[in-house]
């Protein structure tokens, strides 16, 4: 526990920086959750391709990003690319690195959900005369997204927590600012405890929203006719 309220006074001196850091964290979380979702849908779409080469390439991409720590990829982009004359800003690296990583996970969740769909619905849609693209956006995607909501919202929560990694590539997000405050006040324990508390509150709010989204998206249960 914080020994006394003096820590809050010490920390509040730096509140403009902390607030900016918090805003950066939230902005980055929102961006990568959205770009990761959109890119994940695109990757998932490609996993259904009729081209064997395309499917293998996409599976390779997913395996590489799920099988590699995100920090390695962030360092490759931020510290490795300048060796080849390519210098990206910390925000660009963060968005690019996270998007590619999160998209791979999201695509995997969607594939799992897709495997649980009734294939006869797809056959019925083909028999009605729908194109593959129409079947994807009218039948497959809505059901896959609905079934993936728990996994996708857990990923969004994970994204929020993982953004703390980007302080290692000089991005001034919340954790980086709190690190700065700790260094200035020498109240390492108190400041990191406070940092954890803020993340916990943010994650709790997000978890609550996620559970509401799950309930909202839930289909009516089977009637007694089908039991």
């Amino acid at each position: 526990m914080m020994g006394d309220l003096a820590v809050l006074q010490d920390v509040l001196v730096y509140w403009p920086e902390i607030a900016r850091g918090l805003a950066s964290t939230l902005m980055l979380s929102v961006i990568i959750t959205l770009t990761g979702l959109i890119a994940g849908i695109a990757v998932f779409y490609l996993t259904l391709s009729s081209s064997d080469v395309c499917r293998r390439a996409v599976q390779g991409y997913i395996s590489i990003f799920i099988g590699t720590p995100l920090i390695v990829f962030l360092f490759l982009l931020y510290y490795g690319l300048p060796q080849w004359g390519i210098k990206l800003t910390p925000l660009t690296v963060a968005v690019l690195g996270f998007t590619l990583n999160v998209a791979a996970y999201n695509a995997r969740y969607m594939t799992t959900a897709y495997n649980g769909l009734d294939p006869s619905e797809i056959e019925a849609a083909k028999a009605q005369g729908f194109t593959s693209r129409q079947i994807f956006h009218l039948m497959t995607l809505p059901q896959v997204l609905r079934l993936s909501i728990p996994a996708l919202t857990n990923q969004a929560i994970q994204n929020l927590k993982d953004t703390s990694l980007v302080f290692l590539i000089q991005y001034a997000e919340f954790f980086a600012q709190m690190q700065e405050v700790a260094l200035r006040t020498f109240r390492f324990f108190d400041v990191y405890l406070l940092t954890g508390l803020v993340y916990f509150i943010l994650v709790s709010v997000l978890t609550n929203l996620a559970r509401r989204a799950e309930m909202f998206a839930d289909l009516p249960p089977a009637s007694r006719h089908n039991r």
Partner: peptide
């Protein structure tokens, strides 16, 4: 083929209604 399929109404054994 799509025009052909639109002229043939297909009712499946397990109904195949779109669940969502």
């Amino acid at each position: 083929v799509r025009a052909l399929r639109q002229m043939i109404g297909f009712v499946f054994q397990n109904y195949a209604l779109y669940r969502h």
